[in-house]
């Protein structure tokens, strides 16, 4: 990671982990991550923006920061890039829900030992970790493709993969939390309710799978692998 990107990551973490208001976010310049330096912005790439958007999802911050970032630059396919933003927020929220689930099962004792010590729990959380890793990978690859330009296929895959991960992982998160995760005072629902909402925003599984499937079928078996490795 470049020094500048590491600085951005640190600033992002400092600001977004403190339930910020809009003034704090704007003061740190997080809404101007894509704006050129000569215009007073950070001058970053989509991959830099990913750091901010992912953290927005991780800390469940309720501010229109993704929208502001999109508004700050000329984007030809606005809907597509909005979907990419949602996929990144989902990746962040999945990582946060995983961290919370790991922490909770290590503390919560039943049968005289931590829940985390039971294989039934360990195997479920391993699946969760895999799904969170997949969603994060898909988002990272889509943002990198966006920097190259023409990322329609990658963004479609990233949003669909985030939805698949959310479906599997939210079920596990709630199962391992027991009734505690279902209360309004505990913070799990700040993540899972957002994940359910985001799964329907900017295209659910049916929308994206249909779009990808139609395109792949149209290209045919002979082009499948060539297209995947372009």
């Amino acid at each position: 990671m470049s020094e500048l990107r590491a600085l951005l990551a640190r600033t992002t973490e400092q600001v977004l982990s403190q339930t910020p208001d809009w003034a704090a976010v704007a003061q740190a310049g997080l809404d101007k991550v894509l704006v050129p330096e000569s215009w007073g912005g950070f001058g970053g790439s989509w991959e830099d923006a990913l750091i901010v958007i992912r953290a927005l999802g991780y800390h469940a911050v309720d501010l229109p920061l993704a929208e502001a970032i999109l508004d700050s630059v000329r984007v030809e396919e606005r809907d597509l890039h909005t979907a990419m933003m949602v996929a990144a927020k989902m990746a962040g929220a999945l990582s946060a829900a995983l961290d919370l689930s790991v922490e909770y099962t290590r503390q919560r004792q039943q049968f005289g030992k931590p829940l985390a010590s039971f294989q039934a729990i360990q195997q479920q959380l391993a699946i969760f970790a895999e799904e969170a890793a997949a969603a994060n990978m898909a988002a990272a690859a889509a943002f990198r493709a966006a920097d190259r330009g023409g990322a329609a296929f990658e963004i479609a895959c990233a949003k669909l993969r985030a939805n698949q991960a959310a479906r599997i992982s939210t079920a596990i998160a709630h199962q391992v939390h027991g009734a505690m995760g279902f209360t309004s005072e505990y913070r799990l629902h700040h993540l899972t309710r957002r994940l359910w909402k985001w799964s329907s925003e900017q295209g659910n599984e049916r929308f994206w799978a249909d779009r990808i499937g139609a395109q792949v079928a149209q290209r045919g078996a002979a082009n499948f692998w060539a297209d995947l490795t372009r």
Binding site: A156, E205, A209, D210, R211, I212, G213, V216
Partner: peptide, 9 residues
């Protein structure tokens, strides 16, 4: 199409 899309992603 849905199957192809899911597996492709």
């Amino acid at each position: 199409r849905l199957l192809i899309g899911e597996m492709t992603a």
